[in-house]
Design a protein around this nucleic acid. Structure first.
Lengths: 116, 116
DNA sequence: GTAATCAGTATCACAGAGTATACCAACTAC
DNA sequence: GTAGTTGGTATACTCTGTGATACTGATTAC
């Protein structure tokens, strides 16, 4: 009985974990979300805020994330066209994950430096 | 001044985030860590607990994670050889990330179901 | 007139992540 | 004797995520 419940929860949790990995997997989605949530709105601004990303990857990921309703893209067709990206409320639900990962990365760096 | 501090923190955080993604990136590492932390010790046991994984991927990831001191592999050379995997304390530092991701996955499922 | 910025797109190319399938030797259970 | 388990390895293949480079047309700045 207790065992059955345990097994069942495990299966449910693996699935939830795999779903999450599916949605935010890859090298760039979380850094992009983080950047936009930090207030970066313009394409080049976001690009500059993420070390190593190329315009191509940023463009592709933004498109995909817009389709998945994670971000909103607004075009202001004034004389020089202006484009702005914003995070949606849904996007902000990744906050805890991102915070946990930033925390881990900082601790990891300390750990590595202590070892060396 | 305030702006400089803000920018600097942002850069530091992106780096931490990217470091973390580098370490636990890919489709399988977190599910494997989660499985072992949940008490699964034997190869086939871990394999069965993760939907979709192949023996090859599990074997490769376990080897890599053993090299990175994330897990410990112990062989008991009794009549049928017995192998056990354990998580190291270092491995357990991913706990918060995994929990946050499981949480997100569950909420996401609700969200999807409500929409449909 | 030259350079730079903006928001991207177009092509090409590659490594390696991931899949599929079969196989091994030793052992247990029926 | 046959099927199943255990802990993997071998081989072959796909595919896509990612990178590198170049380019666009409009605008602004020197």
């Amino acid at each position: 009985m207790a065992k059955a419940a345990l097994v069942r929860n495990q299966a449910e949790e693996v699935n939830a974990l795999q779903d999450t990995i599916y949605v935010i997997g890859g090298k760039w989605k979380l850094p992009i979300i983080n950047s936009i949530c930090n207030g970066n709105k313009r394409f080049r601004e976001i690009e500059r805020s993420i070390p190593g990303i190329t315009t191509r990857m940023l463009s592709r990921e933004l498109k995909e994330m817009e389709m998945n309703k994670l971000i909103k893209r607004t075009v202001y067709p004034d004389s020089p066209v202006l484009v702005e990206y914003e995070s949606t409320p849904y996007c902000k639900t990744f906050g805890n994950i991102i915070l946990a990962m930033i925390e881990w990365g900082k601790e990891h760096k300390k750990y590595i430096q202590e070892e060396a």
